[in-house]
Simulated scan of single mutants.
Amino acid sequence: MKVKALKFILTVAAVLGLALVTSHFHSDSSAQAATKPSYSEAYKVAKKQLGKPYGWGSTGPSRFDCSGLTKYVFKKGAGKTLHRTAQSQYNHYKKVSYKNIKKGDLVFFGGSKHSISHVGMYIGNGKMIDSQNRGVIVERVKAPWWNYVGSARPVNFAS
C-alpha cells in the first residue's frame, strides 16, 4: 500500500510541477508579447521634447544634444537603453537602407560612416525629430545642410 501511495504522490507532484513550468513559460512569452515597445509610445515621448533647447552633451529632460535626445526617447518610450553618442549608436545597431526605413529608425549624418556627427529619429514622410542648434525640432531627413550617411533599427517596434 505504501508503494502505491508513494507512486501516486510522485505522479501528482510531477503533474503539478509540469503544469507550473508550462504556466511559467506561457506567462513569460505572453508578457514579452504584451510589452513589445510601440512606435507610438516613443513618438509621444519625442513629441513632448519639441521646442526644448539644444545643449552639447545634454541628455535631458530639459535640454538635449542629438544623441542625448534619441537615448532619452528610446529609454522612456521603448524601454531600450541606447549607446550615448551618435557614432556609437550608428556602430551598434542593425543598418537599414533608406528605402526600407520605418518610423522609429535612427537616421545618421556626417562626413562618412566613420565620422557620424548627428542623429535623429525617423517619424515618416521623409521627416525626423532631432536636436540641433535650433533645439528639438521636426525637419526633413534630406535637408541640404545634412549629409545623410545611413539608418539603423535599434528596436523592432510592434506593428
Rank of each mutant, 00 (worst) to 15 (best):
S97Y: 01
A42W: 01
Y54A: 08
Y98T: 09
A42R: 03
T35P: 09
L50I: 09
D105M: 02
S29K: 14
C66N: 14
Q89K: 02
K113L: 09
I129F: 12
V96A: 00
K103S: 06
L18V: 04
L50N: 07
Y72G: 01
T59Q: 12
K71M: 13
K36G: 11
A86Q: 04
H92Y: 03
F64W: 01
G104I: 02
L20F: 10
F25M: 10
I116N: 03
K113A: 09
A78C: 02
K47T: 12
Y122R: 04
Y72A: 00
S115A: 13
A19I: 02
D65C: 05
S23A: 09
S58G: 15
A86V: 01
Y72F: 03
G110Y: 05
A86C: 08
S30G: 14
G111P: 07
I123G: 04
T85P: 05
K48C: 14
G51F: 10
G111I: 11
G68D: 07
S112P: 04
V21Q: 05
T85H: 05
M128G: 11
E41Y: 08
G60C: 02
Y93M: 00
K36P: 09
P53K: 00
H114M: 04
H118C: 08
S29G: 08
A34F: 09
A46R: 09
I116C: 07
K95I: 04
R63I: 13
L16V: 09
G68F: 07
T81Y: 08
F109H: 02
A31L: 14
F108Y: 12
S112T: 03
N100Y: 14
G55D: 13
T70L: 06
V15C: 12
H83D: 04
L82E: 01
Q87C: 13
A34W: 07
N91C: 06
K99F: 02
Y54H: 11
V73S: 01
V45R: 03
S27E: 14
V45S: 04
K95P: 02
S88H: 00
V21C: 04
G124T: 05
Q89I: 05
L106Y: 07
D65V: 06
I101S: 03
A31W: 14
S29H: 14
Q87F: 09
R84L: 09
V15L: 14
R63N: 13
C66T: 11
K48N: 15
T85E: 08
S40W: 05
A31D: 15
K113R: 11
D28V: 15
N91V: 08
Y39I: 06
P61H: 14
R63V: 12
K113Q: 10
V12R: 13
L82A: 00
T70I: 06
F25C: 11
G120M: 02
V96R: 02
E41H: 10
K36N: 10
F74G: 00
S23M: 08
P37D: 07
D28N: 15
G51D: 04
G51M: 09
S117P: 12
A86W: 01
T81V: 08
S112G: 04
G17V: 12
K127Q: 15
K44M: 11
A33D: 12
S115P: 06
G57F: 11
L69P: 01
A33R: 11
F109Y: 07
F74T: 00
K48P: 13
K102L: 12
G120W: 01
S97G: 09
N125F: 05
F25S: 13
Y43V: 07
K95M: 03
